[in-house]
Amino acid sequence: MKTWIKLALLSASLAFGSAAAQSQNKAPAWQLLPQQDLLYLDTDQGTVVILLASQFAPRHVERVKQLTKAGFYDGVSFYRVIEGFVAQFGVPEHEWGKRAQLEPMKAEFSWPVRSGDDYLLVQKPDLLAEETGFNQGFAVAREKGQEWLVHCAGVVNLARANEPDTGVADLAIMMGQAPRHLDKNMSALGKVVWGQSVLNRIRRGDAEQGGVIATAAQRTTIKTARLGSDLANDRQLPLEWMSTSSSEFAQGLAERRSRTHVFYQHKGNGNLDVCYPQVPVRLAKAPTP
């Protein structure tokens, strides 16, 4: 395994602690991510893997899966990239050419809170909502019986025009500081779980030009896009992430909130931004023969 991967996994392990929280929650600490919900982007800078959130944006995820299987994203590029904000890929409108026109999507900005979901409260009240927490691994906000995905770094949404129901096919990955102003204004449909370092290498546009990179030759290209379930076994990454319903994850939140380590001279006020504690992801260990 590459050194940077080992360091990243070690960092995640130390950050969240090895001791289990004193909790009644018995959820397994690590959960294998389903290959049918993993979107692999093979770019000219490396591989990025997106976990699609079909439980929250089912129509959008179905559209992305259909387009992926049809080869729509093969050969497209990151044509709008703004440092510290967004990396958008797909086909600019003026370059559609012979590609079939698609019907715009009905927005999936939010949905009713479901009492049966595994939800872990993080902050109440939140700066921009009544409360925030984690639902099945995703950072969410809740208010007045509605829930939505929070635009933390790595979250993916469907690009659109000014009108709400105008998203078609292009996807945008959040980078840098969390653009919370997009919460409940964009249809978020997943998050990057692998290859964040690849995003650091994609070519940027000029912020004064809206981040748009004028010519295809200057852009970072997605050579192929595939669902993990359509890849050969030896090309699948056995990714797993820490369950946000586990006592280990809850312990990690408690440690970040209280800052009990001797390093911290200022202990804070106990508040915690839901975008700060990223959910650890690692390659699953091979079973012992």
Rank of each mutant, 00 (worst) to 15 (best):
150 V>K: 11
253 L>R: 05
31 Q>G: 00
279 V>P: 09
89 F>E: 14
46 G>I: 02
86 V>H: 01
141 A>I: 04
4 W>K: 13
43 T>S: 11
10 L>A: 15
169 A>E: 12
64 V>Q: 04
4 W>Q: 11
207 A>D: 13
44 D>F: 14
235 R>W: 01
185 N>W: 14
93 E>H: 05
206 D>L: 10
220 T>A: 06
68 T>H: 03
26 K>M: 07
201 R>E: 15
175 M>V: 09
53 A>P: 04
111 W>A: 11
235 R>V: 00
239 L>C: 04
223 K>A: 13
123 Q>G: 06
79 Y>G: 00
251 Q>F: 07
214 A>T: 07
77 S>K: 09
118 D>F: 00
289 P>Y: 06
167 G>M: 15
160 R>Y: 03
42 D>L: 10
41 L>Q: 03
265 Q>E: 10
88 Q>V: 03
284 A>I: 00
38 L>Y: 04
90 G>E: 11
127 L>D: 15
25 N>W: 15
285 K>L: 09
173 I>R: 11
14 L>Q: 02
257 R>A: 03
92 P>N: 10
25 N>G: 00
247 S>L: 01
243 S>L: 11
107 A>I: 04
158 L>D: 01
79 Y>Q: 00
244 T>F: 09
197 S>F: 01
51 L>K: 05
287 P>K: 06
171 L>W: 07
145 G>M: 09
49 V>S: 07
11 S>C: 08
28 P>T: 05
2 K>E: 14
234 D>L: 01
189 L>F: 10
211 G>L: 06
215 T>D: 13
18 S>G: 13
56 F>N: 00
242 M>Y: 14
277 P>R: 01
158 L>F: 12
130 E>Y: 05
200 N>G: 13
165 D>E: 11
147 E>R: 05
164 P>W: 12
65 K>V: 00
119 Y>S: 10
141 A>R: 03
281 V>Y: 12
78 F>V: 04
167 G>P: 05
219 R>L: 01
233 N>L: 11
4 W>Y: 12
222 I>L: 13
88 Q>C: 10
43 T>G: 12
266 H>I: 07
107 A>C: 10
260 T>G: 09
9 L>Q: 12
80 R>K: 02
267 K>V: 13
19 A>D: 10
73 Y>K: 03
89 F>L: 08
178 A>H: 09
180 R>F: 12
282 R>S: 09
58 P>M: 13
167 G>W: 00
60 H>V: 06
33 L>Y: 08
134 F>D: 00
58 P>T: 08
112 P>G: 11
213 I>D: 08
151 H>W: 08
280 P>W: 02
239 L>P: 08
57 A>C: 03
11 S>R: 13
19 A>S: 10
272 L>A: 04
266 H>Q: 10
249 F>Q: 04
50 I>Y: 00
14 L>Y: 02
226 R>P: 12
10 L>H: 08
100 A>P: 04
174 M>S: 14
89 F>M: 07
6 K>L: 05
124 K>D: 14
223 K>N: 13
204 R>T: 10
